Computed example of a mutant assay.
Amino acid sequence: MRNIQDKTKKRLTIAGLGIVCVALVIAISSQFKTETPPDGGNAPASIATVEVNPSADIGGKAGEKEVVVPASEPTAAPADNTAPQTDQPVQNLQPEVTKPPEPTESQKTDPTRKPSGEKVDNVQATDHNNVQKPDATQTGEPKGGERKDGKVYLPGFGWVTETGGSGTKVDGDGDINKQVGTMD
C-alpha cells in the first residue's frame, strides 16, 4: 500500500468536511420551508379587489384609467372558542386572583386587632427614647481584653491563652516580586 503524503491528507480532510457542511446546510434549510395546504385554507380573508374601467376619461386626460376600490368591511377577530381536544375537564392551576376588600377606618385604628383581623394580646407601648441598654457588667461577662491567669478574654471566643504576639520582621523595600528567604 502506498503512503499518502501529508498535503494530500489535508486536502482530503478539508474536502470531506466541506461536503459534510453542505449536507448540514441543506438539511437545516429544508426544515424552514413552508407548506401550503392543498385547499388553500389559510388565504387572507381581507383581500381588496380592484376594478378598472378603461372607458372612463378623467379630467380630459386620455390614457389614464379610473381605479375603483370598494370599501372592505373590517373583519372581526375570531373568538377563542377552541373546542376541548379531550373529554377531560380543564384544569386550572391557580384560582382567579381577587383583591381583598379594604378594611374600614374602625378596623384600621383598633389597637386590639391586627390588620389581618387577628386578636392582639395586651401589649403596652414603650417609649423608645427612654430605653436603657443592659450593661455588660450586669450580665457577669468580662469585657474584651481583660487578663486573668495568663489568659485574655476575647468576645465571641472566651478565655484564650495569650501568645505574646510573636512574629518575624521581613526586610523589604516595597518590591512585591522580590524573593524573601531561601528556596532550597
Score class of each variant (00 low, 15 high):
residue 5 Q to N: 13
residue 6 D to G: 14
residue 9 K to Y: 11
residue 9 K to S: 13
residue 11 R to F: 06
residue 12 L to H: 08
residue 14 I to E: 15
residue 14 I to F: 15
residue 16 G to Y: 08
residue 18 G to D: 04
residue 20 V to I: 14
residue 23 A to E: 09
residue 24 L to N: 07
residue 26 I to G: 08
residue 29 S to E: 12
residue 34 T to V: 13
residue 34 T to E: 13
residue 35 E to N: 14
residue 35 E to S: 00
residue 37 P to Y: 04
residue 38 P to K: 11
residue 42 N to C: 04
residue 42 N to R: 13
residue 52 V to T: 14
residue 56 A to G: 00
residue 58 I to M: 05
residue 59 G to D: 07
residue 59 G to R: 09
residue 63 G to T: 06
residue 64 E to F: 00
residue 66 E to H: 04
residue 67 V to H: 01
residue 69 V to R: 02
residue 70 P to E: 10
residue 70 P to Y: 03
residue 71 A to L: 15
residue 72 S to D: 14
residue 73 E to M: 05
residue 74 P to A: 07
residue 76 A to W: 02
residue 76 A to M: 05
residue 77 A to H: 08
residue 80 D to C: 07
residue 81 N to P: 03
residue 84 P to H: 12
residue 84 P to I: 00
residue 89 P to E: 03
residue 89 P to D: 04
residue 89 P to C: 09
residue 90 V to S: 11
residue 90 V to I: 10
residue 91 Q to S: 14
residue 96 E to Y: 04
residue 96 E to T: 13
residue 98 T to Q: 05
residue 98 T to P: 01
residue 99 K to R: 03
residue 100 P to H: 13
residue 101 P to V: 10
residue 102 E to P: 02
residue 102 E to Q: 08
residue 104 T to L: 05
residue 105 E to R: 07
residue 105 E to Q: 06
residue 106 S to E: 15
residue 111 P to T: 00
residue 111 P to W: 03
residue 113 R to Q: 14
residue 119 K to Q: 04
residue 119 K to S: 04
residue 120 V to L: 15
residue 133 K to W: 10
residue 134 P to H: 05
residue 135 D to P: 01
residue 136 A to M: 07
residue 136 A to C: 08
residue 137 T to I: 03
residue 137 T to Q: 06
residue 138 Q to A: 04
residue 145 G to Y: 02
residue 148 K to C: 00
residue 149 D to K: 02
residue 150 G to I: 01
residue 150 G to N: 01
residue 154 L to V: 12
residue 155 P to T: 07
residue 155 P to G: 03
residue 157 F to H: 14
residue 158 G to F: 06
residue 159 W to F: 04
residue 159 W to L: 03
residue 161 T to P: 08
residue 163 T to M: 11
residue 163 T to S: 12
residue 165 G to C: 09
residue 166 S to T: 08
residue 168 T to R: 15
residue 169 K to D: 07
residue 176 I to Y: 13
residue 180 V to G: 03
residue 180 V to M: 09
residue 180 V to Y: 11
residue 181 G to V: 01
residue 181 G to C: 02
residue 182 T to D: 08
residue 182 T to K: 15
residue 183 M to E: 09
